[in-house]
Amino acid sequence: MLAGLAKGSWEFRVRHGDAPAAVCVRSGRELVQIRHRQAGCSQYVVDDQPNSVTVQYTCRGDGYGRTTIRREDSRLVQIRSQGMQGGMPFTIEGEARQTGSC
């Protein structure tokens, strides 16, 4: 499902809170780790459907997460992610929209 997303600059807006974040999407996997931005995390695809994907990931020394991305179309997705970062739990819900090129 992630390979079908438009490449380029995306804006992620959290439903309750933080300011929008810019994400440069090259493969779609950049949207999986919204809270853990570092490279080197392991990812495991739990479920991959035509319009949704769920990925579990682990970042050694910084925590883990489980993210579900539901595609509205190739330029708009709904994202829900939860896990642990730095010993603290997190839950994020929001949407990401393609806004241009990186």
Results as ranks from 00 to 15, higher is better:
21 A>M: 10
49 Q>E: 11
47 D>P: 02
83 G>E: 09
60 R>W: 10
45 V>M: 07
34 I>Y: 10
91 T>F: 07
87 G>V: 11
5 L>P: 01
37 R>W: 01
34 I>F: 11
28 G>C: 15
71 R>N: 05
83 G>R: 13
47 D>C: 07
77 V>R: 14
2 L>E: 06
53 V>S: 01
69 I>M: 04
76 L>T: 11
16 H>A: 12
75 R>E: 14
36 H>I: 02
29 R>G: 11
44 Y>D: 12
38 Q>V: 04
91 T>E: 08
86 G>N: 10
62 D>Q: 09
70 R>S: 15
84 M>L: 14
36 H>D: 01
86 G>H: 03
3 A>W: 12
66 R>V: 09
43 Q>W: 06
18 D>W: 02
24 C>Y: 10
15 R>A: 10
20 P>W: 09
49 Q>W: 04
53 V>D: 07
44 Y>R: 07
25 V>G: 15
20 P>Y: 04
32 V>K: 06
57 Y>P: 01
88 M>P: 01
101 S>I: 04
54 T>P: 04
58 T>L: 14
69 I>Q: 02
1 M>N: 08
45 V>I: 13
35 R>K: 12
54 T>S: 15
85 Q>N: 08
29 R>I: 09
63 G>N: 11
101 S>Y: 00
90 F>G: 02
97 R>H: 10
84 M>V: 15
64 Y>K: 05
61 G>K: 06
41 C>S: 10
63 G>D: 08
51 N>T: 09
49 Q>A: 13
44 Y>I: 04
39 A>W: 05
83 G>W: 12
29 R>M: 15
38 Q>P: 00
25 V>F: 14
91 T>M: 05
44 Y>S: 08
38 Q>H: 02
12 F>M: 14
3 A>L: 11
83 G>P: 10
54 T>V: 08
68 T>L: 02
17 G>C: 03
100 G>M: 05
79 I>S: 06
39 A>N: 01
80 R>G: 04
9 S>D: 13
47 D>N: 12
49 Q>D: 11
99 T>W: 00
92 I>G: 05
67 T>I: 02
54 T>C: 11
71 R>I: 13
16 H>D: 14
102 C>F: 00
6 A>N: 10
67 T>E: 03
32 V>E: 00
94 G>F: 07
74 S>Q: 14
85 Q>H: 11
98 Q>T: 04
56 Q>H: 07
18 D>C: 01
23 V>G: 11
27 S>G: 10
68 T>Y: 06
32 V>A: 08
27 S>K: 15
78 Q>E: 12
67 T>H: 06
77 V>S: 13
73 D>C: 13
10 W>C: 07
18 D>R: 06
51 N>F: 06
33 Q>I: 05
39 A>T: 06
51 N>W: 04
23 V>N: 10
52 S>W: 08
53 V>E: 02
3 A>Y: 09
15 R>K: 08
80 R>M: 07
10 W>E: 08
4 G>L: 11
27 S>W: 09
102 C>A: 00
102 C>V: 01
65 G>F: 01
94 G>W: 07
12 F>Y: 15
14 V>A: 14
78 Q>P: 04
52 S>H: 15
94 G>S: 13
46 V>M: 00
95 E>S: 11
102 C>L: 02
14 V>D: 14
8 G>C: 13
38 Q>I: 00
27 S>C: 13
51 N>S: 09
101 S>P: 03
29 R>L: 15
